[in-house]
Design a binder for these strands. Structure first.
Lengths: 288, 288
DNA sequence: TATGGATTGGAATTATTATTTCATAATTGC
DNA sequence: GCAATTATGAAATAATAATTCCAATCCATA
């Protein structure tokens, strides 16, 4: 590796992107095992950031010494300094997202004018989406979709704050040609409508604290008829959770006393379209 | 720390939020130096995740042994296991906004199963929020809020896909005790309802391509009666934009053929609460 | 203000982990 | 196909870092 190498490219990558580019660039010319660890590093950056040389080497199927040679080949003086880059990446990543939200929140709280209010709602929505994306239970989702896909008619049940979500579900189900019935409170015919539901049907019920008594009552009635219920609610203490066959806990952030609906909406749409996919049997979804 | 302690509360916090709650909970009862490191930990979680016991202790101004005692007091068997929680947090809360979106999109496109669909909707919602946050015209917002705040009755006009937003606006206006009228298509009384509107009132109209003909027609009629209109729509070619006194262009991302509503919702809530604030004259908004 | 218990600081000890070394295997150039 | 070079594996070693221990200090209470 001669003097050239040492003098020429001692521009050690200091940030992850540069490092990534460097690795990709040299990929072809790397020895087998080194290439192996290089690929592993780009695929599992978090493991590099947190693991020990031994554990990483084992996961990647190489010897610890190879890992160190890899680092040295990139110009670092050892595994430890390579690792710093991977750690720095996590730090910055994190802070940039948080900072953004914090900035929005700060503007929302401190700022004057209506822009501040708007920022508050955007921040609440972002937070909610973030949370649900982290916490959503995949098995739950699969189960709910299966359950709903089997139903002859899907009843959609929600009042007050949750009603907009219900109406969007009904709209989407309609577009997908899936038979559904929105239980609105307006006409006062709810009891009759609910009476038609059988165990061959299914319900999507949505309610958040303070739970609309009508929703709870209707959910109870309908569950006593043996109709399976998919519930979207906000805690395991929710009365809805009791009647539900499958239920989702969705924590929506709020601003100015109004909670976001964005997480609930995303979940609702996933359920709806999921059912559509499942029914169609086939299923490749298109992208935006 | 006696047997009781060991046997009784060996529910060691496994995730960061629980840990945080536990610390906050016990804050009062912690000895001085332990409290010091506790505060430091919550303020600089990244340092805990990446630092060594010695470096963290130095930054926090305590001895390494104190750090270990802190961990033990929380039920961990040493600093290392405490640190795991802080590292796990970084892993889960991964990715900057952009990376995160990319990851979601990738999963949504490549991935199978319903989780992928869900991710697609979350990505669409996030993108939309991001976009509107960048592009929203503040002057427009102020003008719209003023216009609506002056209105005797606010009419809310939207069909189909936009209807959920309208219903949430109506709900929120109701909670804020602002007189409003939702123009639904159900009862077929729209023409009559619209007939009552005067120039002293105002309209929020929402419509996206393909524009529901009914919405357009009603907007036209109502604008001919001299009623000012705030429109939320998706392009300057929108027929709604023609009748509008103030209009917002909102570009919602879509997934699987269904557009997100999150940006529209955020704007709608900002308008609604903005009007509430303005009416109340005073105006400090509360935070979540 | 003396006494017991809890808390703290600092160094000694133990453990873990990175790095080096060296023998062996694979590869390359001639 | 052979020598020189480069790459690899495995274990020894050096380094670093966590943990423990004990003496000193603080604090509440009688």
């Amino acid at each position: 590796m001669s003097l050239d190498r040492v003098t020429m490219d001692e521009r050690v990558p200091r940030d992850f992107e540069t490092l990534r580019a460097t690795i990709l660039d040299r990929r072809e010319s790397l020895p087998k095992r080194i290439a192996q660890i290089a690929a592993y590093a780009l695929d599992n950056p978090d493991d590099i950031a947190f693991g020990t040389a031994a554990s990483i080497a084992a996961s990647a199927g190489v010897q610890p010494s190879t890992l160190i040679r890899f680092a040295q080949q990139l110009g670092f003086d050892g595994f430890t300094s390579l690792q710093q880059v991977f750690r720095e990446r996590l730090r910055e990543r994190n802070s940039s997202y948080d900072e953004r939200l914090l900035a929005l929140r700060a503007k929302a709280e401190g700022g004057a004018g209506h822009r501040a209010i708007f920022d508050g709602f955007v921040a609440a929505a972002s937070t909610s989406l973030n949370d649900i994306s982290r916490t959503l239970d995949e098995a739950n989702l699969e189960e709910a979709v299966s359950l709903l896909a089997r139903a002859e008619t899907i009843y959609v049940l929600a009042k007050r704050r949750s009603y907009p979500v219900a109406s969007y579900i009904a709209y989407a189900l309609g577009k997908l040609k899936i038979r559904n019935q929105l239980i609105e409170s307006a006409a006062g015919l709810n009891a009759e409508m609910i009476g038609f539901a059988t165990p061959a049907d299914a319900v999507i019920a949505i309610s958040f604290s303070p739970y609309a008594p009508a929703t709870i009552e209707e959910a109870r009635t309908i569950s006593e008829q043996g109709v399976p219920i998919v519930a979207i609610t906000d805690s395991s203490f929710s009365p809805l959770a009791q009647f539900a066959t499958v239920w989702f806990e969705v924590a929506e952030a709020d601003f100015a006393g109004f909670r976001s609906l964005s997480a609930t909406m995303a979940l609702a749409m996933a359920l709806t379209v999921g059912v559509g996919e499942k029914r169609r049997g086939t299923g490749r979804k298109r992208k935006a």
